[in-house]
Design a protein around this nucleic acid. Sequence first.
DNA 1: GGGACATCGTTAGCACAGCTAACGATCTCG
DNA 2: CGAGATCGTTAGCTGTGCTAACGATGTCCC
Lengths: 151, 151
Amino acid sequence: MTSLKRERDALALADQLHSAAIHLLRHLRKEDDASGLSAPRLSALSVVVFGGPVTLGQLASAEQVKPPTMTRIVTGLEKDRLVRREGDKHDKRLTRIHATAKGRRVLMAGRARRVELLASAVGKLGATEVAELQRGTQLLKELIASMRREQ
Amino acid sequence: MTSLKRERDALALADQLHSAAIHLLRHLRKEDDASGLSAPRLSALSVVVFGGPVTLGQLASAEQVKPPTMTRIVTGLEKDRLVRREGDKHDKRLTRIHATAKGRRVLMAGRARRVELLASAVGKLGATEVAELQRGTQLLKELIASMRREQ
DNA sequence: GGGACATCGTTAGCACAGCTAACGATCTCG
DNA sequence: CGAGATCGTTAGCTGTGCTAACGATGTCCC
């Protein structure tokens, strides 16, 4: 295969991946709405639930977002009693974000709803296609990880 | 394969796809910023460039967005001279959106930038892996189309 | 010990994207 | 011709992203 063709392939592939990701998220956003949580809040809550207590700055960095943005997201989550702010004992500049029981419960429910839509579509595929899609997803994840490393 | 395992597979796959889509877009957003175009504008522009002249309603539907939202996106694109509004000759309620030469140029430049980011990562893949990723992307697109049909 | 500098989170203010409701213009069909 | 449907826009709300600036706290070095 010529390098020219490979380059064209990469172009088309990147384009389609980008478009597919946009449209996929747009569909799933509807399900997120059902839980009363926007995608950024759900994503941040997920980090807090699975990543244990975390400072606001760490959370912002994990979510690839600036601190002022994360301040507002956390404020929204706190108002719904999904997370709790707690001051650090030793460094009073820090704010540690903890998940509440309600936060954990809502996250699981939202996740299930969101993924159910996709899962039902996946369920209509044949076994071969599921395997191919799994392989593609695995490659995509590796691609993203390698992009992050380069950064 | 038991139906139980298939269900678990579908759920796990859906979860990973969701996560991968979020992270991919977060990375690519940085590059999109360089073109001065937000993701929704870039995506809409892409539809106009490749899908020929299209009405505002069709564009909104293609982008899974309500007409008022698309009105503003198109207004932004028009202000930057990337698209042009034109009235339909036969049905005066319709507004047809055309891409301008500048619109085509900017879209291609953004595409190139995006691909450049992926280039090193894709370059590490073998031809087989590229083919697998293409197949996965194709399946993902079909998945999204089937979700849309259900809706 | 004390002062200069760094770090953390917040506030203020801007732009954009998503929505619903309501409206004017236009088309369609009885 | 007139009633209702359809299309795009406007108005107004919420939420997410940013930068700039600030107060509070930690750190480090003289």
